[in-house]
Nucleic acid binder design. Sequence first.
DNA 1: ACCTGAACACCGTTCAAGT
DNA 2: ACCTGAACACCGTTCAAGT
Lengths: 229, 229
Amino acid sequence: MATRTRRPERRQEPLSRERIVGAAVELLDAVGEGGLTFRALAERLATGPGAIYWHVTGKAELLAAASDAVVADALAEDDTTDATPQDVIRALALGLFDAIDAHPWVGTQLTRAPGQPPMVSVFERLGRQVKALRVPEAARFTAVSALLNYILGVAGQNAANARSQPPGTDRADFLDTVARAWSELDPERYAFTRGIAGRLREHDDRAEFLAGIDLILAGITANLPPGAG
Amino acid sequence: MATRTRRPERRQEPLSRERIVGAAVELLDAVGEGGLTFRALAERLATGPGAIYWHVTGKAELLAAASDAVVADALAEDDTTDATPQDVIRALALGLFDAIDAHPWVGTQLTRAPGQPPMVSVFERLGRQVKALRVPEAARFTAVSALLNYILGVAGQNAANARSQPPGTDRADFLDTVARAWSELDPERYAFTRGIAGRLREHDDRAEFLAGIDLILAGITANLPPGAG
DNA sequence: ACCTGAACACCGTTCAAGT
DNA sequence: ACCTGAACACCGTTCAAGT
């Protein structure tokens, strides 16, 4: 057992931005947000840390590129035809949710200065559907922002949950931990939270996320002028 | 004034968790999220980095405590009586917004595992108002989550904006930068985003945030059973 | 052009030693 | 009990030297 063979040494294809980003995604998935270091990544790529800098300007760009690669995948499944604007928005949101659920560290990277890819694509797609809902022009920005900020909030929450638990923790165990913590809160000051703790055990993140999207969609369409919708 | 003994350092009051957290808030406000180091903080407190560890377990706790101090302040302004549940929710949300606007780094810290103070307080307060709106029990969790996730999304966005610009950048300049970037997007692929860029110049973050809250509130109350609201 | 890896600057954290 | 500050382990990044 002492002589564990080094990696099978198949001849390396040359380093490339694509390989680097791919390895970064794997590393982030395997060990979480804190585990991506240039040394660990270099080892995985069988090279030195300096080599990475030839293809990528630094860690910020690397994280952004890793996140973008995941999100671009999620956005690739394209708008179904024959669907209502609501359906298209739901599909888009769920695609993002699933990507973030599978790669929680993306939730931290998603929030950027406005107008950076890939979120500007999401903004654009949401905007088109909001327009298709016949939301008056003056109200469109608010509607799109509400949807986007909600999505980003859930994404961030997802990332925080992942950070707070060792990677690979079972979701049910996690919810159980939260439910137990809530049940132990002060009965008077936290009456509402305590009262709702029991529901966590039958909680479905994905369904809950979608219910939130539907709720915002209901708000968007609630006060449409006559003839719209 | 002539014959006073020179005392460049007035005698320090002893170190305390409170003083440390206060200094951390000042440092974060002054130099942004990346500027909080134990060395810089120790210098500001006229001591060595090790001393801080007697009062605080580490950087994560320090950041959390700094954020909590700011948010606790914002939550202190208490529920107005004689107000509708909507009004109470608006006031709560605006209080958080203003705190985050004044201390953008809080936006990064706000997102934690669920049930940690101070967000559990926000959850509780929102929950009580949602109940007061006569939202059926089964729908309350979704309603509170939608509000909270929206708030957290805006908070994160705020923090990202602050990171992307040197601290102290004028807000109008920032919006102008974004508007210019959006105007230069591909006219076909980003038609919606381009079309809305002009509105950014008359954009009021605070009003826009509140409009999003109102939109979600509209969604929450849109489908209430008869006799509610 | 692309890679190597030692070196640099800096950081969070620890701890023996002081008061 | 509380503080000091050197030391440790580790990290992002650079760069002279290689191919």
